[in-house]
Structures are given as structure tokens and as C-alpha cells.
Design a protein around this nucleic acid. Structure first.
Lengths: 149, 149
DNA sequence: TAATTCTCTACTTAGTTGATAGAGTTAATA
DNA sequence: TATTAACTCTATCAACTAAGTAGAGAATTA
């Protein structure tokens, strides 16, 4: 698996909205500024995430985006797959590829790619955005402690 | 980590040469045919592998390539890094990237990328081409058994 | 010398990535 | 109702990379 900017931006956008879960609408521009993402690019990404059911939005003045699901119920792996495609070091491990390894019994590397895929999935499909929010806040608290202690 | 055709071809080429280790020279064309790789593309890959010290070659009639190291001592990870670059889901986990996550303490995803990288390395840096040869031959033996039993 | 085989450099083509541009649509509110 | 704020949609673009092709050159053998 490889994370591109697009995927990275998507994860950051969802995290940003998860941190504002049940706290009203968030404008694209706010997310773009906080997460340092080009706004016009972010627009496209948010639309894709909305299309996939992760976000809802409201147009017009006072409009904005908000998370459509509980952050506890969104795993990182879902977003990564949506933005980057199947999680696998080589395409032919995923069912959608018929190109390589047509004689699959011949490919002696395949078990390794499967192993790596399943280890990777073991990470990204276990962690939710609620977990990420917790980590984020813990990290922030720690920082504040440094000032107050 | 993602394996491109280039990396896939390199792994197959090394495996092919490992199967002929200490059995004389192997012509590019043989490898290309056995592994189903475009020959002119394979040429470039073999040159890169030679440049990195994995192969030696002899020119002219009766020439060919041969493995410069014991297959036991070549780990898959070495070849993958050589052909694909650093093993990490996101570039900024590797030391050569200064672009993203400049405020690294702020990036709450980073520990996950590190985790995935180390799990992946745990696979590819443990397995050698001698292991792959063993698997390959075991697989072939099994196939033959099907005919003889 | 002729045939064989690796070596080197350049080129090409198609696709992807990471944007940017701008017109359109909806909603709130003065 | 007019204006403004905000999301929506489509098109376009430049740079890069991957994958492959082409062809001349150099070394070795017979």
C-alpha cells in the first residue's frame, strides 16, 4: 500500500471533521487552512467522500460539511481503499486484476504479498477515527502540560 | 509499499538466476522467456541489478548473467528497495523526505505508517531467495507428484 | 571474420497525480 | 428580492512516472 497526497488529504479531512463531530457544520475553507490542503483540490476530495456516504453537507450561507457517521465506526482502511484502491503490494492479489500472474500457481511470491496485505489490513482496519481523535487530543494535552507544569 | 512491474520483473529475474546458481551463465533471452518479461526491458533491469552488485555478466558468444551472491544472502527487501525505493506507506516516514509532515509532532497518523512499514520489513527482510527457491521447488515437486501418484 | 551476447543511450506513449479555473446551484438573510 | 456565502460540477493542465521500444556499440568465441 502507498498513500498519495489525495489519500493523505482525505484522512486529514475526515480527522478534522471527526474532531468536530456533532458540533455543527465545518466550511471547506476551515479544513483547508487547518490541514494545509489546497482548497480546490480538497473540494473534489470532500465530494468523493460525500459520494461514498461518509459526509453530508449543506449548501449556501452558513453551509458546510459534517461527518455522516460516528467516528468510532469509520476505520482508516475504508478511507484508504476508497482513495487509493485495494490494499495490496501487488495488484494481482486483489480480485479485480487479471493481468499478472495468470498462472497463479506458478507465482512463488504471491503468498508473501498476501501476508503483507493481511498485516497491513490488520492495522488500518482496526483503527478508527475515534482512536485518532483520542491520540490527537492526548498529544495536544501533553503539549499543554509542557507549558503548565 | 507497492510493487510495480519493474520490481516484479527484478524479483523474478533474481529468482531465475538463483535457481541456476553455480550452474553457469544464463542468457537474458532465457530469463525473458521463462519469466515472460519483455526482453529489452529486462536488459535494463539486469543492468541495474548488476550495477548494484547482485549480478555479474560475461559478454559475447556463450555469455550471460549469473548471480554474484549466495541466494541465502539476498533478501527480497534489498531488491524491492533497490527497484521501488523506501518501504513505507507514506514517503515522509523515510528519512529522505522533507516535504510532508514538516511539523511531524502534529501528524497523528505517522505511528501507523511506521507500524505498517516495520511489519512489511519484517516480511521482506526475513525471506531470502534461497527460501524462494525452496518454495519453488517444493511447488514443482508437488505438481510432479500429481502426475506420478 | 562472423555470430553472439551484453551495454548504453535515447526515445516514446499512455496514464496518473496534483492541482487550478470558472461557471453553476442552493440557502440564509438584510 | 437581491446579495452574499457556500457547496457542486466539469474541464483543463503541467509535470511526472511507468513500461516499453529502438538501435548502435563493445566484447567474446569459434
Amino acid at each position: 500500500m502507498k498513500i498519495s497526497f489525495r489519500g493523505d488529504y482525505a484522512l486529514k479531512a475526515i480527522l478534522d471533521l471527526a474532531l468536530h463531530y456533532n458540533k455543527g457544520l465545518v466550511r471547506i475553507q476551515e479544513i483547508a487552512e487547518r490541514q494545509d490542503i489546497p482548497i480546490k483540490y480538497l473540494e473534489q476530495i470532500l465530494l468523493a467522500l460525500k459520494g461514498a456516504g461518509y459526509l453530508n453537507s449543506q449548501r449556501g450561507a452558513k453551509g458546510g460539511y459534517y461527518l455522516a457517521k460516528d467516528p468510532k465506526k469509520i476505520k482508516l482502511g475504508e478511507i484508504i481503499r476508497l482513495m487509493e484502491g485495494p490494499i495490496s503490494p501487488i495488484t494481482c492479489v486483489s480480485k479485480s486484476c487479471y493481468k499478472r500472474c495468470t498462472e497463479e500457481t506458478k507465482c512463488v511470491f504471491r503468498p508473501l504479498w498476501n501476508k503483507i496485505r493481511s498485516l497491513t489490513e490488520g492495522v488500518v482496519d482496526k483503527v478508527s477515527f475515534a482512536d485518532m481523535c483520542r491520540d490527537y487530543e492526548a498529544k495536544n494535552k501533553k503539549k499543554l502540560d509542557m507549558y503548565y507544569i
